[in-house]
């Protein structure tokens, strides 16, 4: 098999799929030309904790699984922790990705950061994500 059972599980039963109309932060990364776009929505409470996450992804199995896993990993976490999510952590949580699919996990990390970035921008706080 190309993918681990974890990847297949998250691909076949993706967690937190959908849009969020009243999101506090929205991040979109990737490029349709390259075959992957991830859009991530976060809802943040007044204690800067991510209370809800949703995603929409155009891409292959590992892109969908990476997005799904990333949403699970940041849901319920303080924003300060969410921005530390690394692509390696996503890969490990998925029990690995094939070498040519690693960029999908990078996109997942970037999508989270972009959503947090947007949240800070909307709040008027200087973004501390993309450094």
């Amino acid at each position: 098999m190309l993918y681990s059972e974890k990847v297949m599980d998250h691909f076949q039963h993706p967690r937190n799929v959908g849009k969020m109309e009243d999101a506090d932060g929205v991040g979109e990364v990737g490029n349709a030309k390259c075959g992957d776009i991830m859009k991530m929505y976060i809802k943040v409470d007044d204690k800067d904790v991510i209370t809800d996450v949703k995603f929409n992804t155009f891409g292959c199995g590992s892109a969908i699984a990476s997005s799904s896993m990333a949403t699970e990993m940041i849901k319920g976490k303080p924003i300060t922790e969410a921005i530390k999510l690394s692509n390696q952590a996503v890969v490990e949580a998925l029990d690995g990705l094939p070498a040519h699919k690693l960029h999908c996990s990078v996109l997942a990390e970037e999508a989270v950061k972009a959503a947090v970035d947007d949240y800070y921008t909307k709040k008027g706080v200087k973004p501390k994500v993309q450094e």
Partner: peptide, 14 residues
């Protein structure tokens, strides 16, 4: 339904 590209196509943004 889970594709942001489709969403943009539907809305006429793409």
């Amino acid at each position: 339904n889970m594709s942001p590209v489709w969403e943009e196509l539907k809305k006429g943004e793409r």
